[in-house]
């Protein structure tokens, strides 16, 4: 059974995929208040991701969650680069680099600037 990774698109990310073939794959959720790209992950690769990140899990919707922010960022970067959702292999090749970044965010994530 395949699993999924959902990538939320904020304004900046939306801008980066505008006019590419990815644009029409954008799914509006929660009444259009959020926009998301869904990357399908074959079973053996989702197992690899679960093994790689201690806290990662698959939720009741079949989505891989509780992965490091660095992992999601890498998924989006690869999407923007390839202009395609077929990027999971490229992301997995970057695992060592993602693990390095993930270690740092285990103790510190900068808070957002809101009042």
């Amino acid at each position: 059974m395949p699993h999924y990774i959902g990538i939320i698109l904020d304004e900046k990310r939306l801008e980066q995929v505008k006019g590419t073939p990815v644009e029409e794959k954008i799914q509006p959720i929660f009444g259009g208040t959020l926009k998301m790209l869904v990357v399908e992950v074959p079973d053996e690769k989702s197992q690899q991701i679960l093994k790689e990140f201690e806290r990662a899990r698959i939720d009741s919707r079949g989505f891989i969650e509780d992965v490091p922010v660095a992992f999601r960022r890498a998924v989006f970067e690869e999407i923007a680069k390839a202009k395609s959702l077929d990027v999971i292999d490229n992301v997995l090749q970057r695992l060592p680099e993602i693990q390095e970044l993930a270690k740092k965010e285990a103790e510190y994530i900068p808070p957002p600037e809101i009042e």
Partner: peptide, 30 residues
């Protein structure tokens, strides 16, 4: 259906995206 998943929300929070009001109230996020 679009489920409210606690871990989905945690992911959004960690990425620094403010959840929309229909999912989480802005004052709760604050």
């Amino acid at each position: 259906k679009q489920k409210f998943s606690g871990s989905f929300l945690r992911g959004m929070v960690a990425e620094g995206v403010m959840p929309p009001t229909v999912v989480m109230r802005p004052e709760v996020y604050k």
